[in-house]
Amino acid sequence: MKKMYSNKLVITSLVLPGVLLFVFAILAPICLSVYYSLTDYSGMGSWNMIGLDNYKALMKDEAFFTALRNSLLLAIGFICIQHPLAIIVAAVLDKLSGKGESFFRCVYFIPNVISVAVIAYLWKFIYNPNFGLLNNILKLFGYKGTVNWLSAENAIWSVLVVLIWHGFGWGMLIYYSGIKNIDPTLYEAAAIDGANQRQTFLRITLPLMKPVIQVNVTMAVISALKQMETVYLLTNGGPGNATQFTATYLYQQAFKAFRYGYGNAISVVFIIICLLATVFLNKIFEERRPEGRA
């Protein structure tokens, strides 16, 4: 076996498929996107090289910065609302046993197995100002007015609620799996030492969950930046650009406004932001070595 893996032909045959997949599925599309971002290509016909004009226009595009702001708000919502709740629910589920644990684990994950189209139209009916569930609940409590949940003032917050709710199951399941992999003898030792549940959670569960939290938070930030389907079906970025996100704005510019070159400029900036966000989060979560140690 050792002799086989020292054979250059064997090594090449094992590595080559992965390299080719990376080149043709990731690297080549990125290079093409950079190229088209330097043109005025409309998606059909000929095109001209215009240099950095698309990027200059992008820096003055208020709708683009609105989309970035909304993506940032969603990322904050994921990190500050969805994930703390998800890790607490995962810790509580871990303390349950038998059918109760399985039942609630399935209940929390149900929204993630429902079609995005169904989720979007379900919430459209919930938010409907005439017969929607939310307004009917308000009427039960004596509120006599009607709230338009998808108006320019309320739409972004309504969309954020849907997205945070919809992605909750994935985050919870990842944290649940991470907690299940913690050695139970650590909890037994803590109980013998007299630690209560709060101390056990803060001193054992959270520190040992740090790698899981890092992966989950990084995925959440990238998911917030590339959010598309639910927003497109729920509001299509409207009213105006109130609920515009980076991915929806990219789609509209490239395939509806026929500004394919401009859409590619957005995608290049999007890739750069994702890479910077990943590096930044890795820096935050990296282990700090004590001074004087190698």
Rank of each mutant, 00 (worst) to 15 (best):
I110K: 05
K256D: 00
W123S: 14
Q82G: 07
K56L: 10
V89Q: 03
A67S: 08
N54C: 04
Q82D: 09
L234P: 04
R105M: 04
A57Q: 08
S177P: 02
S102R: 13
A63V: 14
N48M: 03
M4Y: 15
A257W: 10
I30S: 12
F64L: 06
L163F: 08
S6Q: 15
A254H: 08
P207M: 02
L20D: 11
H83S: 05
C106S: 14
G45A: 03
P207E: 06
K180E: 11
T200Q: 14
C80V: 11
I222K: 04
Y175C: 01
L163W: 03
V215D: 01
S33K: 01
N136P: 05
P111R: 10
V147T: 15
D40L: 05
G169R: 02
F270Q: 09
L206V: 13
S13H: 11
G263M: 06
I272Q: 00
M228I: 13
W149C: 04
G18V: 02
A86I: 04
D40G: 07
E62G: 15
I114Q: 06
Q214H: 10
F125G: 13
A191S: 10
L16N: 01
F270M: 15
L186Q: 07
N196F: 06
A242T: 14
L93D: 03
Y175V: 06
Y143K: 06
I50N: 00
L186K: 07
G18F: 09
Q214D: 04
A152N: 02
E153N: 08
I164M: 13
A294E: 13
G51N: 04
W123Y: 14
F201G: 07
I174Q: 09
Y127A: 09
T185S: 15
G51I: 09
L206F: 07
Y36I: 11
F103G: 03
G171L: 07
Y127G: 08
R293N: 10
K2Q: 12
V10Q: 07
V113E: 03
E229R: 00
K210L: 08
F141R: 05
G237P: 02
G194C: 11
M1N: 15
Y108M: 00
R198C: 10
G18W: 01
V107Y: 13
P184T: 05
T205I: 06
G132D: 11
L250T: 05
G77Q: 02
T12A: 11
D183K: 01
L208D: 07
Y41K: 04
Y108F: 14
C31S: 13
L32F: 10
D193I: 13
T235Q: 01
F270P: 00
V269I: 12
L85R: 03
S151I: 11
Y260M: 14
T278A: 13
Y36V: 06
K60L: 15
Y249S: 06
N112Y: 13
S37C: 00
